[in-house]
Design a protein around this nucleic acid. Structure first.
Lengths: 206, 206
DNA sequence: TTCATACTTCGACCATAACCGAAGCATGAG
DNA sequence: CTCATGCTTCGGTTATGGTCGAAGTATGAA
């Protein structure tokens, strides 16, 4: 039920029970515990009770837990969000995840613009030129104490994507350029037709 | 046992059992499960088996989980070590934790010498002057790849203290100045009378 | 070799968690 | 009003996990 709610959408108790394959009674019991623990919020609306993750921090923790579980080979058969829009592109903390996030990272790595060494990721000289060309103010980013590049394991793809200050800056840049926007109340990053075209062009498949 | 291992030190099965207040058999059962799950690593050395967290990612996840739990008010009643000396000042990885660690961080933050932004911590210009005045070779630290400042959640105090290269350098400096020394075989940092006086003077309570 | 220590395995016990059927509320529709 | 729907509470069963005593294995010391 928690992973289902990671879509950011609020779902009713019945929907969550059906999703989890348990009866309404059992679901009700779990949901009340989760709400009591502060992990879920509940909103009554008519006869329905809509449940959602309490805040982003809960979603981030779930994603971190699933990321670690995936690396250790303990994932369930079904992984990642079912919603195709979420699988395609979503926010993870403040950077881009999903198929688009992984594609961007792979594309950068294949052209030698970033180098992955274990858990560390670094930007090469060519990479600096490249991201500057995208309109990223690199000196401003490096002046932050925050690590410029970090790797982050993608939940649905189980592949590395780009986190850190640069990951955040790139997603913000896509917003600024009007290529994509965050769908309110969800973790979905929705690309426009033109935005998607440009993104795929700039980050070619490897 | 996992929270105990967050100190970064490798501990034997018996030590972990004693710390958790369970028998050796029970501890053995849990440790083998945790190792099987890839959360712990084991190193045989003579008759002892030393256990440690498998990698930083595990520690980070534990920290995130405890952070969220603390925010939601679900921390266990008994937290931190029972030994008063350990509660007062101890090493966490290579930096100072316990009451003294938290006091140092609070004092630095209250005077605007460090700034905490979520999980990131940065040293201000005034902070740079301050730590240089303490005899820290700041240029040497910043040349390291390792992050200069990191926040670390204190187990017993449930409060932030200073980790990272600077956290390590400060503790080393206290050793050099003769203010404190590490008690062999323990995580206790023992301050001398004079050392404690100077420490409390330099890092006034907020 | 013999003994002590460190740890694991086995077997059993008990507390708890997950689960569902039945019944009970609450809400909206007719 | 009555009825259907969505959800919760209650009671009881089953499965699981945590726990320890007893016995077994490995290692180092005497």
């Amino acid at each position: 039920m928690l992973t289902t709610l990671m879509s950011g959408k609020a779902l009713t108790a019945s929907e969550l029970a059906a999703e989890a394959g348990i009866t309404a009674q059992t679901a009700s019991s779990h949901l009340s515990k989760l709400e009591g623990a502060g992990l879920l919020t509940q909103r009554k609306q008519g006869r329905h009770r809509y449940f959602a993750l309490a805040d982003d921090e809960v979603g981030n923790l779930l994603e971190a837990m699933m990321g670690l579980a995936a690396k250790r080979g303990h994932m369930r058969a079904r992984t990642g969000p079912r919603d195709p829009a979420l699988r395609k592109a979503r926010v993870c903390y403040n950077h881009l995840a999903g198929e688009f996030g992984v594609r961007m990272f792979d594309s950068l790595a294949a052209r030698g613009l970033v180098v992955e060494e274990g858990e560390d990721v670094s930007l090469t000289d060519e990479g600096e030129t490249f991201v500057s060309g995208l309109g990223i103010d690199l000196p401003a980013l490096t002046s932050l104490r925050r690590p410029l590049c970090k790797s982050c394991l993608d939940w649905s793809m189980r592949r590395t994507h780009l986190a850190g200050a640069l990951g955040t800056a790139l997603l913000d840049r896509f917003y600024d350029l009007g290529w994509a926007r965050r769908i309110d109340g969800t973790r979905i990053v929705s690309f426009t037709g033109e935005g998607e075209r440009r993104f795929l062009e700039i980050f070619p498949a490897v």
